[in-house]
Structures are given as C-alpha cells and as structure tokens.
Nucleic acid binder design. Structure first.
Lengths: 230, 230
DNA sequence: TAATAAATATGTACCAACGACACATTAATT
DNA sequence: AATTAATGTGTCGTTGGTACATATTTATTA
C-alpha cells in the first residue's frame, strides 16, 4: 500500500481523523555559519518565547503550502541575511513529540555557509547576532542538538568537498584557509602538511597576487578554481 | 524570532490561514534492504493508485500525531515484516510540492537492513515482494529518487561502519561477506585485499567453526564481535 | 581409493597519502 | 642596516590501497 490512499484509508482504518493527521506543522531551521576573527560563528536570534527566556535559537520558519523544503530554507536565509546565492545543505529531520512547546512541529534542519564580509549581507533584525561556536550556551528548543548535528556534518564534508570557500571572500591566502579549517575542526594543523593536502585536491587557482596592507610578509592570494561551490 | 510564535504570528503577517499551514501531511518511507541469492534486494509493494498503475512503491505511512519520526519508521517496518530489532537510519526529507498526487505530503526517508532469512520475518501482504536493485523499473511517486539516495548513503556507510551484518545470518563466511559487499557496491573485489581490509577493521570474531553442507571446501565461520550493529 | 574439481587461505612488492619535523626567504618596521 | 614576523618549501618513515599466484583442503567422481 505504501503511500496509497494514505490520506484516507489509513486514517479510517485506525480511527484517527483526517484533522489529526494534518495537525502537525513543518518548519525548516537553518544553521547559518560564518567565519570572522578566526572563529566559526553561527547566526542566532534571541528567543522571545517565555519557555526559552534568555536563550538563543536558530533561524527558521514554517514551510508554506506551495513551497518545497529547499525553497523554504532559501527564503529564511534571504529574509534574514539579504543573501540569495548561498550554499545550503539539508542535514536531518527532527521530530520529537515535545520539541516545540506550542504543539507538534517537525523541522528539517539545514546548514548554510556565508561570507560575513559580503557586501550584500544585511541582518534583518537587531536581535540577530553572530555567536562563536565555542561560546554557546544551551539553545532554545532542540537547537543545540540540531547545531551539533550540522557541525558534525560540516566537519565531515570539508574533508572532501570544496565548500568552505563559501565562508571566505573571493580571494584569500593559504594562511586564511588553514585558519578556517582549524576553526571548523577545532584543531591545529601543520602548515606544510596542510598546504600539501590542499594542493593535492586541485581546488585552487593561484592568482599571482599578494596580500596587501599587513605588517608582515604578505602571502599569495588564491581563489576557488571552478565556480561550483557545492 | 525563529520558531517563536510560528503557529500564529507568521501566518497572520503573511495572510495565510492556520489551516493552510497545517494542510501538509508528513509520512515516512522505508527503503527496506535485504540480501538473497548474491543480490541486494528491496522490499516493494505494488501501487494501487491509478496514477501509478503497474508500478511499485516503497513502504511508508503517515506519521501519527503522538509518534516521533523514528517510531513511525519502526512501526512501518514492524507492520510490514514482523521484525522489530532492525537497523534503521534516517537519510533525507523529500518535499517537492507535487510529489504526491493526492496532496502535499512531505516524507522522511529511511533505509533499513534486515536478514531475509530471519525466522520471524513475515511479510504482511501478498503484494509485497523483494526486488533486485538491478532489475527495478521506475517506481511510483519520487521513490526511484529516494531509493537512489538511500543506496548511495548505504554504499558510503558500509566502508566505515559495521552495518552490513544486519543483512546476514548470525554466522557467515568471508566469502559470503565479500559477495554481499560486491552486491551492494556493484563491483568485484579482490579476495586477498578484501580479507586484509576486513581483518584490519577488527569487526569479526572467528568462531572456529566451518560451513556445512556445501559441495566444496567449506570456509571458516565468523560473527560480528560486538552486539552493536550500528 | 586415487584422481579431479572447486573452492579456501595466504604474502609481497609497488604506489599514494599522511604525519612529523627545520630552515631559508621575504617584506615591513625600527 | 639590523631586527622582526611572517611565508614558503622537502624529506623520511609509516600506513593503507591495489595488483597479483600458489599451495591447501574438502567433496566428488571415476
């Protein structure tokens, strides 16, 4: 039977009304990662639910009737940051019965990677702020769990996929890139081994330009080879 | 704001009614894998929706009001196979607007691994059948996509996680194990290298028993070391 | 019961990737 | 001109991956 007649037959058989079945809301929640001051950060908003007084939560919203899941996440991102060309990846669905105090809400979690320095970045709200992932308290709802899950997936993905570049400006030095990997992974890396490994991946294009305006020897600048940031 | 007042405020603001927001159903769909005759198989049911006449679909059901996501999948599995101690893993949420002909249904996809020879296995329905993954036509709904997604994830997971043992009987030979990996990955593997690799993982316990009742030289039997099949 | 068939069991040599590790070079500053 | 603080680079040992051939064991058959 699978999904056959799901909307009718199963409900009948089990004596549960149509209304009950639809009385579950669906949201998306976005873990929006950014990178600043050598720290991985996440965009959070102060919760104004009394149950979560003083706590922060992820950015999310209910899915609209004519909107698919990815579109809902892109919308949240666009509404909150003004950005639309962003990296976004679905991670997991969370559906514990009591995860939302106002009722049954199943949420699909995404993470996205954005460049905090992007000129179009415009936060929608003055209670929206960047928080270092190393200085987070407990978040509202099950958002601590969601964040952990997304962070774990991010850490796995960056080993094989050229996605961290979404967190950096167009041009960057190997030093910057290494510091970013260190911030995400929470470890220190050996410079020579890191450069060897990155060089093996073949992701980078040498721009034959140097960093400017530092008080030290400048490094070479690179950029991501293909425009495919996924 | 995040999920704050989602159930009320957002709907008001956007002039979309409460009813609209809840008029989305949520299901789970299970890709139930089994292994038989050196082939990876999946349990499918003949669709009896007229839109999908002659096609097969995955096993799924709507999520019930008081049931979390994993519980819903376990229930589907139990109802369809009679088994309850199964390996189950959430993979992805699918929510295209028109994926279900009867209305908006978002589904959370899982895959599970079961031993086709398990003595408790009892299929619920005579239109439920095992299909080799190499001989599948197009499935109903977006189930071909769901199946592909789950299979891809399975292929990645088996490299690092001792999960394929859920598809085998308690005791098995290295030959059986290798044939299973070959069936899942769709490639042939070198016997010596395979054994070396498996031995490196340290997953197996040598039972000091031999296969019985074959017409060739019997192999040694092994079993999974820890009872943790995840 | 001896020969045959069909599988199991096993080790080496080459190559790629990974981690540990130290020194010369460059640009800005003093 | 000397100092400072960073960039830039190579080797060696270890490990994991792949390619590859032969001896052994059991059941079967002649």
């Amino acid at each position: 039977m699978a999904e056959k007649d799901l909307l009718l037959k199963t409900a009948e058989t089990e004596k549960i009304s149509h209304i009950d079945y639809f009385n579950i809301a669906i949201s998306v929640d976005c873990v929006i990662f950014g990178y600043e001051d050598k720290e991985l950060k996440v965009l959070l908003i102060k919760s104004d639910l009394k149950e979560f007084e003083g706590m922060y939560s992820l950015l999310g919203d209910l899915i609209r009737p004519g909107e698919d899941l990815d579109a809902a996440s892109y919308r949240v991102l666009k509404e909150r940051t003004g950005l639309d060309d962003v990296y976004l990846e679905q991670v997991h669905a969370f559906g514990s019965i009591n995860r939302h105090p106002s009722g049954r809400v199943i949420t699909i979690a995404y993470y996205s990677l954005i460049d905090i320095g992007h000129h179009k970045l415009q936060l929608s709200h003055n209670e929206l702020n960047w928080h270092s992932i190393n200085e987070l308290g407990k978040l509202a709802f099950d958002h601590s769990l969601i964040l952990e899950t997304c962070l774990k997936q991010l850490r796995e993905r960056i080993e094989d996929h050229p996605i961290v570049f979404n967190l950096l400006p167009e041009k960057f030095s190997l030093r910057q890139l290494q510091e970013l990997y260190e911030a995400i992974l929470g470890v220190e890396l050996d410079r020579r081994n890191f450069r060897k490994k990155i060089s093996l991946k073949g992701w980078l294009k040498d721009l034959n330009e140097m960093e400017k305006n530092l008080s030290h020897r400048p490094g070479k600048l690179y950029t991501l080879k293909s425009k495919l940031k996924t």
